[in-house]
């Protein structure tokens, strides 16, 4: 039996996390999802658990999603990181790519999530 895909969701908005969770569960894969509302919570989880993918908001209190990605990579270098944000500026997308992150613009569609989860 295939192992469940372990996913970390990081977004200060509970509604944004609910929306992503709903879409991920519709992807047809066995998943285990953990949530963090800010960078500190996310780092605590990354220190304790191994994840396959982390979906991270950009605009959060404290540190932004790209700064958080840089800290996560020191702990779990192989974790696939995705920046999920409505801030679709070219400059942000370029910085995300330089940090080795994939990029998804909000609102995320089911098709985009399917591709991401099943890749």
């Amino acid at each position: 039996m295939p192992q469940a895909l372990k996913i970390l969701l990081v977004d200060d908005s509970r509604v944004a996390r609910l929306t992503l969770k709903h879409l991920i569960k519709e992807c047809g894969q066995e998943v285990e999802i953990q949530e963090a509302a800010n960078a500190d919570e996310a780092l605590d989880l990354v220190k304790e658990h191994t994840f396959d993918k982390a979906l991270i908001d950009y605009n959060m209190p404290g540190r932004d999603g790209i700064e958080l990605a840089s800290e996560i990579q020191k702990i779990q270098p192989d974790l696939a990181l995705v920046l999920v944000t409505a801030n679709v500026q070219d400059a942000i997308q370029e910085r995300a790519a330089q940090q080795g992150m994939k990029f998804l613009g909000k609102p995320v569609t089911q098709e985009q999530l399917n591709q991401l989860i099943n890749s």
Binding site: S13, N59, T85, A86, N87, V88, Q89, I92, K106, P107
Partner: peptide, 9 residues
């Protein structure tokens, strides 16, 4: 956040 950022971005 989504609407205003879409527009400003």
């Amino acid at each position: 956040n989504i609407l205003l950022n879409s527009c400003l971005a």
